[in-house]
Design a protein around this nucleic acid. Structure first.
Lengths: 223, 223, 223, 223
DNA sequence: ACTAACGGGACTTCCCGTTCCT
DNA sequence: AGGAACGGGAAGTCCCGTTAGT
């Protein structure tokens, strides 16, 4: 067998297939052989690149799930003057127009977090790193809003960011179990109402009307 | 070896041990042998009472996890005139004085929900039944508050109840992964602030000051 | 629980259910619990009457399968002056008008014989006892025919009887595997042709034409 | 531990050991661990080559038992002008000089057929394929004899072939249960007498005297 | 850099039998 | 005479990881 000229491509293929399996079945129930069958590769390829099933899982967290958070939440919020409006759009995108898979499978990181964090410290740390970036991104956006006057001065940006991450992932879990988009929409509506609470009392109540078309560009797949 | 005169007691012992294992390791990773070892019983007893690991899991959901929700959330709220104050106390109890285990292991039903609902329809249905009771209990309490004038008339009780269940379980998951009580306290504080939003505009803003001593009596273990 | 007034009836029920299970799945693959489920009884009843699965099997051989041979082969042949004609009718009954079950399941004793005789001496002896009665019954009938002049004097009655038992059970096994009545009819026709070979050269070639209606009365279920 | 360069050899070893176990204990009662212990291999090897106990059984039928029929019956009969004589020799070889194992264990395919054909369609089809080759081989030999004038024109070659397969396997089963070579010899003698019936009336009654020394070269092991 | 072949173990299932009790 | 509860073990499946080779 000749040397592959693009080993990183092989690595990517394995990680992608693994991410799908972990999302669908969870880490423990996922089978290494299944993952490899999807790629057409064999054990040797996997254990050359990773060495262990857990390390493969770590790579999925760091290189796939982190990216989902960044694309879905962090990038759409960077440099936005009115973060509450934008957050409302993002939440609407997830809660009101989810794909069937998003409902059925829920939030990838949260699934992994609840399954593995109490069992495997390596997972816990890496997932925590993703969550931290998520929370900090939201907090930074909120603080920028405070600077611009679109967010009340007295809100604790970090606390609210933490709450938002928890709420969003929790409500997605609820909807996953119920397999119901309506439940997701219900909870999403309340969450958006809550966000309006954070605006300064006077001045223009809100930005553009919620549910506008702009948010669509931010939707991709996952978190 | 004397035959047991109280087979239901044996059944309870197995279910209890299983609940602990499932909570600690998840359903898939839990081992039947471990569960039995905790009880001192053998395969024969389990096969007689349950027949399958999945059926054992179903019984845990129906007979243990449902009870946690009922004791922690439903019973403390029945017949309460001012549900927002009481909800604040309950949330404070979970978020500000959690036991180390509660932080480390998170919310039992939510763990199982995210692990199994996409894989096993039997689990999904039973967990959904628990979640429904939870949501309906909160909604009923909020409606009673509306009758008594302690909750704003224009709030959608079912939507808020759904959001509360999602938020609480989501924030507990976040704290579980971070293994941090502070994060839980942070999110809990925001959630309680949100609850104050739901009170009628005029009149006495709130009941007793939040975080009062009364709520301690409602804390037990789990959800 | 009060004493049953007719324990022998319980015993019969178990044996009957066991006979069906053994015939359908074989002895090893048959499950004691399945057998009991058919009867509505429990382990206590079975192990009161039998003590072991093997002993239950022995009883089935002795009390059920032996009866099939007797009813199907021995009784129809007792005191018959022209055994070849009668044998032809019996064979025709099995080979040309078998019930679907008879084709699907084959000959009960032969099934058990091939499965168990090399493994369990207890089975082998009892099955051998049944086979011996079968063979002796045929041999006696043939000898009576020789006395009456309907069977050639120079045929070895025991040898032919042995061959007949082997051929019939073998051809039924072949048809069972092929799940084909035609194969059974094919082989049966040849066997009946062979029987004609055993008649004395001169004199009336045969009795009534083969395939006559009389044989129907001899058919019951099994061997 | 050196990796095997000839995996087909490993495969053969497993199949051979399995064939012996299945022949000795039957398929259901045979233990995978026992089979592997005979070969010195482990679960991994079996799972790689077969994946399932049933698939191993299928391979045994297709690659071992089929070969027995071919070597014992088909090859000795190909291109033979006087098939009845040759058949007599083959039957004599099995019935008059069987090895102790042949008596004790009986005909491999027939054992499997009676045990599995009513339970597992995969077995039934494959065993039926073997039986069909057997029957067709005999029928072809008989037709060639008819061409050469050594077999009567009016015999139905397929029917007689079917009957022969059934009789031989049935008589072997009878002898297996009785654990008696005499019974086998008895039935074999009758079968050979029957074969003589199929010769054309006039002309040289038979070829070489039955029981001649030539048949010994065809004996191998099984069917 | 990757394949084919295999090691070795753990898990659930399921089964036969036993004992206390009525 | 028989029901209910449980003991204890073995079997098949499947899975993760490793090594010899290329």
């Amino acid at each position: 067998m000749s040397r592959n000229k693009y080993p990183q491509l092989t690595r990517r293929k394995i990680i992608q297939a693994a991410a799908e399996e972990f999302l669908a079945k969870g880490f423990t129930a996922a089978s290494v052989d299944n993952i490899l069958q999807k790629t057409g590769l064999t054990k040797g390829a996997l254990y050359y690149h990773f060495g262990t099933k857990a390390e493969l899982g770590y790579a999925v967290v760091e290189e796939v799930f982190e990216g989902l958070v960044r694309e879905e939440w962090l990038e759409p919020l960077t440099g936005v003057d009115d973060p509450l409006t934008r957050l409302g759009e993002l939440i609407a995108g997830i809660c009101e127009k989810p794909s069937p898979e998003e409902i059925a499978l829920g939030c990838p990181i949260t699934n992994l977090a609840l399954e593995m964090s109490a069992v495997d410290e390596g997972f816990r740390r890496r997932i925590n790193w993703v969550y931290d970036r998520w929370r900090r991104g939201l907090a930074r956006a909120l603080r920028l809003g405070q600077t611009k006057g679109t967010v009340r001065e007295d809100v604790d940006a970090v606390a609210v960011a933490t709450f938002l991450v928890g709420s969003v992932s929790g409500c997605r879990g609820l909807a996953k179990n119920a397999q119901s988009q309506e439940i997701l929409a219900l909870a999403g509506g309340v969450l958006r109402d809550y966000l309006e609470t954070l605006r300064p009392p006077s001045g223009p109540a809100a930005g553009p009307p919620p549910g506008g078309p702009t948010f669509k560009t931010y939707r991709k797949t996952g978190c």
